[in-house]
């Protein structure tokens, strides 16, 4: 037990939490923007995977990590557009279309990787680049906090910055306003001349771009290679994080951190004498538990409102009787 606390309260652990939260956070922001526009995007997993590969290939070809990132984000956005085309134009069930994208991503990435580099499952022959880490001069020297907060990959900072940007975008800009209107009451948006389809396209493209950042981080920051299925469900965890975070940027950030913490825990606890398999289960179990608590709470709320109304009704009916 002492070991356990030693791990949890170590500086390394704090650093690790931020590190593993990054891809979940990007994807959660992607989930958020599409959810706000009223389309559920369960293709985040596949989008991240595709972008992760794109980042590796682009950076290897161009010898530039920046161009790799750019490629990853653009391809993520393109996949978002494809999803939008199928869901909105061809009226494919958005869940099935997303499953298809995930499947294509799972195999397609392996296929393309082999085509490009001749590698099977892991990009060992591609000399891909890694995005830089940043030491923050002042913060670095703060004891305890410094080593936790400083020295992360640039995308980690960008991920947390994206929460703030997302907040501004959704709540402060006209486009954000329209996205929220479309997601909540498409008829109302339509009645004031907003094109619902255009807004949902925009949201899915942005969602894909954010997943693209997450994917780029996986292969050009978290590790420095691409491997088969490397996202390991993070796109789905992000979906749960977004829902549990009450569909707000900050809420989603906190739940992402929570899941990130469990993820980091499963990495750090491997030194303990607990079977590794149980530790690896932690992030997924935590997600399910979180999801259930969230959904149960919501159902409870509705029940409470109904119960309240029933009470009022009885009161009302009794009054009628007395009259």
């Amino acid at each position: 037990m002492a070991d356990f606390f030693n791990i949890i309260f170590s500086v390394d652990f704090g650093y690790a939490v931020l590190r593993v939260t990054t891809p979940i956070l990007f994807a959660a922001m992607g989930a958020l923007i599409s959810d706000k526009a009223g389309v559920i995007n369960i293709a985040l997993e596949g989008m991240m995977l595709i972008s992760a590969l794109t980042g590796v290939i682009m950076s290897a070809l161009s010898h530039s990590a920046g161009l790799g990132l750019l490629g990853a984000v653009i391809v993520g956005a393109l996949v978002g557009m494809v999803l939008a085309y199928f869901a909105l134009n061809l009226k494919t069930d958005v869940i099935l279309a997303a499953i298809a994208i995930n499947l294509i991503a799972m195999g397609g990435t392996v296929f393309v990787l082999f085509m490009v580099g001749g590698d099977k499952g892991i990009s060992s022959s591609l000399a891909s680049k890694v995005l830089p880490r940043i030491d923050i001069p002042l913060i670095r020297s703060i004891p305890v906090l410094g080593p936790i907060l400083s020295g992360h990959n640039i995308l980690t900072y960008l991920a947390f910055l994206s929460v703030w940007v997302m907040y501004i975008f959704i709540y402060r800009t006209p486009l954000g306003l329209r996205i929220r209107a479309v997601g909540e009451n498409a008829d109302a948006a339509d009645s004031v001349g907003i094109s619902v389809r255009k807004i949902q396209y925009t949201a899915l493209i942005l969602s894909g771009a954010l997943a693209g950042f997450g994917g780029a981080y996986m292969s050009m920051g978290y590790v420095s290679w691409f491997s088969k299925n490397m996202t390991a469900g993070r796109g789905f965890i992000a979906l749960a994080a977004e829902a549990m975070g009450g569909a707000t940027p900050h809420g989603a950030m906190f739940t992402s951190l929570l899941f990130g913490m469990f993820d980091a825990l499963s990495n750090s606890l491997q030194t303990l004498r607990v079977p590794a398999e149980f530790i690896q289960m932690i992030p997924y179990l935590a997600t399910v538990i979180g999801l259930v608590i969230y959904a149960a709470n919501k159902t409870e709320q509705i029940k409470r409102i109904q119960a309240h109304q029933n009470r009022e009704a009885r009161k009302g009916a009794q009054e009628v009787k007395l009259l």
Binding site: L177, R180, A181, E184, N185, A188, A189, V192, G193, I194
Partner: peptide, 13 residues
């Protein structure tokens, strides 16, 4: 749109 404010609904679009 229920979650928007009165003013936001007014100017929407």
């Amino acid at each position: 749109v229920p979650s928007l404010t009165v003013a936001e609904n007014m100017v929407l679009g």
